[in-house]
């Protein structure tokens, strides 16, 4: 378990280097990656499916990223982009591709739905954290209540 967390931190820092993030921030990104991975791997133990787990993990990591970005006065994408990399549904995307290559279209469509749902859950988690941090600064919608 500890070993897995260390490897996850190393993976996140490696991706931060791939995205050319300033080196002073690398250790924080490693911690964010470890947090999101531990949420993502701990929630299924308690009986939550992988899709809600991905949403909660993305939400947690985005929340910490926003807080760190406020502290360090850097754009928040510096933290969120590598922070969600451990959640990317690589295994499911591979299963999807393999099913289509082998001509098993029904299985391929089922895996496509799973992959898209997990990607959408990550996006939803990100968007939710963003909404919390942009309360009062958002765009107008539907009714002009402040007149």
């Amino acid at each position: 378990m500890i070993w897995e967390l260390i490897i996850c931190g190393v993976a996140t820092i490696a991706f931060a280097i791939i995205f050319n993030i300033p080196y002073q921030l690398l250790w924080m990104i490693g911690l964010i990656g470890i947090t999101s991975w531990s949420v993502f791997s701990f929630l299924p133990v308690t009986g939550v499916g992988p899709v809600p787990a991905a949403a909660v993990a993305a939400f947690t990591s985005a929340l910490i990223s926003h807080w760190c970005a406020r502290k360090k006065r850097v754009p928040v994408t510096t933290f969120t982009i590598p922070g969600i990399i451990p959640l990317v549904p690589g295994g499911r995307a591979y299963e999807t591709m393999l099913a289509f290559v082998q001509g098993d279209y029904v299985e391929g469509l089922a895996q496509t739905a799973g992959t898209l749902l997990q990607a959408g859950a990550i996006a939803g988690g990100l968007a939710f954290a963003l909404s919390i941090f942009s309360i009062g600064r958002g765009v107008g919608q539907r009714y002009e209540t402040n007149r």
Binding site: I7, A11, F15, W37, I85, P86, G90, G91
Partner: peptide, 10 residues
């Protein structure tokens, strides 16, 4: 390093 480490997570 990232490829190797991520593959372990999967």
């Amino acid at each position: 390093v990232g490829g190797g480490a991520f593959s372990y997570l999967i």
